[in-house]
Amino acid sequence: MTLTAIGFDADDTLWHNERFFQLTQARFAELLSAHVEADHLAERLEAAERRNIARYGFGVKGFVLSMIETAIEVSEARVPASVIAELIAAGHEMLEHPIELLPHARETVEALRGRFRLVLITKGDLLDQERKLAQSGLGEAFDAVEIVSDKRPETYAAIFARHAEGAARAMMVGNSLRSDVVPMIRAGGWGVHVPHALTWALEHDTAPHDHPRFAELPDLGDLPALITRLSTSS
């Protein structure tokens, strides 16, 4: 293996993100408790998010709009304006939450800096992702930053053709099998799964354990050693 570039996902790979969505969703259930049970509300919200990804993309804004849509639906348009206002305020709070890096994120990125071309590849709202990267203090460690609408095999093929020597000589590291791992492997590269305790349902997929370019690590701190083992074994 001649690895020249490493891509990193951002949310729930380098810093916490999903827990803010889950806290807001718990508050959403409280606000709508007079209209629907929490489990059914979660199902309706997930269905709305699936429908709306093509309209709004990924991120806080689409999440808030999906909550408002769901609130109107389950209440048969009787939801008070005060509840809608609280949902909007919750979205504002999510867009302002401070960044907390995950364990070993900084040390791992710094250890690989200069040895490989490092590319941050994240999806979601442009302004929010830029804010989080700036607050993380990791921005200068990356040779390139790509904020994309979705992550597909062709996305990775194009990114690593621009910033490196193609996907075949690159690795993508992230917590999402659906977005970070499976499409990167299909593009011809390495996919490294670093599971997070909280992962959005729409990011689940089957782990390709039998694929020679798949690896799974308990945390980011094991990534440099994995790269060394792969390089030595090749």
Results as ranks from 00 to 15, higher is better:
Pro212Met: 09
Leu127Gly: 10
Glu73Asp: 15
Arg113Cys: 12
Asp219Thr: 09
Val74Pro: 10
Arg117Ser: 12
Leu226Asn: 02
Ile6Met: 03
Asp219Gln: 11
Phe160Cys: 05
Arg169His: 15
Arg113Met: 06
Ala144Gln: 04
Ala168Phe: 09
Leu133Gln: 02
Arg229Cys: 04
Arg152Cys: 05
Phe160Trp: 11
Gly62Thr: 04
Glu69Thr: 06
Val181Gly: 05
Glu203Ala: 12
Pro212Ser: 11
Arg50Val: 14
Val148Ala: 02
Ala215Met: 10
Phe28Leu: 09
Val60Cys: 07
Leu23Asp: 09
Val148Cys: 04
Ala42His: 11
Gly189Glu: 05
Arg213Phe: 05
Thr206Leu: 13
Asp12Trp: 03
Gly114Lys: 00
Arg178Ile: 07
Leu31Gly: 04
Phe214Tyr: 12
Ala85Arg: 14
Ile227Ala: 01
Ile99Phe: 09
Val194Phe: 04
Gln22His: 14
Met67Thr: 01
Thr232Ser: 15
Ile227Asn: 03
Leu226Pro: 12
Phe8Asn: 03
Leu120Ile: 11
Arg106Ala: 10
Gly7Trp: 00
Gly62Phe: 07
Leu133Val: 10
Glu165Pro: 15
Val119Leu: 08
Pro80Ala: 03
Asp125Phe: 04
Lys123Pro: 06
Gly59Trp: 00
His196Arg: 05
Leu127Thr: 07
Glu18Ile: 01
